[in-house]
Write a protein that binds this DNA or RNA. Structure first.
Ligand code: MN
Ligand code: MN
Ligand code: MN
Ligand code: MN
Lengths: 223, 223
DNA sequence: TATTAAATTTAGACAAGTCTAAAATAGTAT
DNA sequence: ATACTATTTTAGACTTGTCTAAATTTAATA
């Protein structure tokens, strides 16, 4: 049906438009895909021919509903496989992205659904990213960045925006895992760095950069 | 490292030389790969350049030790994934081949080894084909065809030679599963069809064609 | 408005893998 | 030994995805 390359382009377009809204620039996509603008233009024509994107030369482009569905289907597979690797095969969360980048292209609807069932219909992957269900609908809303949250409010760490092994290892070093409940005790007026208290009363200082990449949800828990 | 296509060619060469021994003909490989002889010749040159096969124009070809290792590595992945699909995701044995045909090309040594451990270092896939271990060594010898076995001797069904869904469904219909212990009661002198008795004293008649595609081992069990 | 700069697209080329049709080789039969 | 046939290889072409360099369009600046 679609080549790996086409799927990767469609996924990249989806992810760029998630961040920047509106329509995406050829250059931005070229950077994301680690290729040249000319190659992107070539591919855009093909994707438009397949009705996966709307595209007018020089006027930008965006996903059609068919393209959006494909993007969500690939994301669903990517995230289910990541969770499988962590939960079932005991990989750590900083090792799984590159493998899922391959597994997301395996073509077998039955396999995806069986994997989904085996993992008990999970709502989020090991990085807290929501997993679309079999109808490609998100059942969970995305969480908010730690840097945008109020002080002294219980928060549960529910995801990360930066998926690089470097950042994921940083999180592990500071024992900030998904599910951990924390509290912003203080935001430094000078550099917006934060003093954080964990549920076990441990104190952690993190930079504003780090706080921008941690996703949280208000926690309404016992005490 | 290697493309999917190269891996598929190498695997096909391995499987052809397993059956026919010696060196393989361009035409035989073309048929196996569902392509044309000219395309095969093109690929043979590339595989020879990569030192995966020995190849002299017009003189046939065979795997180098490097090529054999690659073939075994791909087979290992194929068979581990097939077992995973059947044992863990509850697929039936006639559904898994095409999916494993894709999964066998996922490139991650760590993933293969983790999968191997998760499945508890299995020695055979759902069709009874032996799985090379992490050093690419077979720990089990291949079984023998039912049609070559002696009469009135307890035999355990340990594999099949034909992997087509048609044949696998035939086996299921006659309730001939892997592990089942059977006995050849009689071989018909006219068409070499067989009367078989199962451990539960059920009688099954099968054609010589079927008997050629069932693999068995002598069974030394509790009566 | 004219000029300049940035972004995007086209032109032309290349590698991988495939194909058909034609040429070369090996093997067999007279 | 010669002729025929089956097998294999080459020649030339096509598709996909990529690239560099040049041309085009849009946007920004003077
Ligand atoms: Mn990918
Ligand atoms: Mn993820
Ligand atoms: Mn394959
Ligand atoms: Mn098998």
């Amino acid at each position: 049906m679609n080549t790996f390359t086409e799927e990767n382009y469609i996924k990249a377009i989806y992810q760029l438009s998630e961040r920047n809204a509106a329509s995406i620039s050829t250059n931005a996509l070229a950077e994301q895909m680690n290729t040249r603008a000319a190659s992107v233009t070539d591919m855009l024509k093909k994707l438009a021919l397949k009705k996966l994107i709307n595209y007018q030369p020089y006027q930008g482009f965006n996903l059609t509903s068919k393209g959006r569905k494909l993007a969500l289907h690939v994301l669903r597979k990517h995230r289910l496989w990541e969770l499988f690797l962590v939960d079932t095969l005991n990989f750590s969360w900083d090792e799984v992205h590159d493998i899922a980048e391959q597994l997301e292209h395996i073509n077998s609807p039955k396999l995806v659904d069986r994997l989904d069932a085996f993992l008990d219909f999970p709502e989020a992957d090991p990085h807290g990213d929501p997993i679309p269900d079999e109808n490609l609908v998100f059942r969970t809303k995305r969480a908010q960045r730690l840097c945008d949250m109020k002080i002294l409010q219980p928060l549960r760490i529910s995801g990360v925006m930066d998926h690089s092994p470097l950042f994921l290892k940083f999180m592990a070093q500071h024992q900030l895992q998904l599910g951990e409940v924390i509290l912003i005790e203080d935001v430094n007026g000078y550099d917006a760095s934060m003093r954080i208290k964990t549920s076990s009363d441990r104190i952690v200082f993190i930079s504003a950069t780090a706080a921008q990449n941690i996703l949280t949800r208000p926690h309404h828990g016992s005490k």
